[in-house]
Write a protein that binds this DNA or RNA. Structure first.
Lengths: 125, 125
DNA sequence: TAATTAGATAAACATATTTTGATGCATTAG
DNA sequence: CTAATGCATCAAAATATGTTTATCTAATTA
């Protein structure tokens, strides 16, 4: 019963659904998600941890980044995720997507003609 | 998104899962559920209302009783209910069941040789 | 009609969850 | 080696949820 409860609790928070929806297209590091959601990092980490603890996410460390991705090892959770994705319309997270794309694009530019004020940006410079 | 959230919120509380599981076998009035869960009535009403608001339950009034039953009009919710029932083992709510059966049995005895101290019992005497 | 009963609801209280701000620890870049 | 970066974690504050106690209404029965 506790396992079931933790599954539903994980899915009963808007920020967490937005994170899951962002990860629908593939793994992202914490700073990507922070940029996409436009939230402070500890807040995002808190929700990432909740999703991980309840078996919806896996993570992997690479260099100084930690990448999170959907954990599809459990059938029921996978089904729930599909249901969630299906029921969250694209428009609902259009802003998140846009901020993410902006951010990822800047990442590309690393080492290029990055203006000084960008040299301090995470994942960039 | 809010609709989806309210669905998962409804399912992320133990008392509510117990109520749903009790209703798996058919409708019950509030006092039945109060007896089964051995909780105070306003608490049970609070959770019944949450389940109703999120589309998992329907109610109907009959005399001075209000009967609650599962609302199977929505496919997704119905699927979730099946998943929940499947994942909550019988033993997990054995006590609830026992108290319910005791209570329903006493109801039968209404008007019979009910001892004086039972005449005030709800649904009974 | 008066007393009883089923159940909703509201206010006060208690607990749980989320958010923030600060700090610490790796890892990497300079 | 020293700075900076990415991220976890912790304590405090803020918010949301659940619980209790008291009260109210409608229906019912004596």
């Amino acid at each position: 019963m506790q396992d079931l409860l933790s599954i539903f609790k994980a899915l009963s928070e808007e920020t967490r659904l937005r994170i899951l929806k962002l990860l629908e297209n593939g793994e992202l590091c914490v700073c990507d998600i922070v940029a996409a959601l436009d939230m402070v990092q500890p807040k995002v980490s808190f929700h990432l941890n909740a999703l991980k603890e309840s078996g919806f996410l896996k993570d992997r460390k690479q260099g100084r980044w930690i990448y999170y991705r959907l954990d599809d090892s459990d059938f029921f959770r996978r089904f729930l995720l599909l249901s969630v994705f299906e029921r969250i319309p694209k428009e609902a997270i259009a802003e998140d997507r846009r901020r993410l794309d902006d951010f990822l694009e800047n990442k590309q530019t690393k080492g290029g003609v990055v203006p000084i004020q960008n040299k301090k940006r995470c994942c960039g410079g």
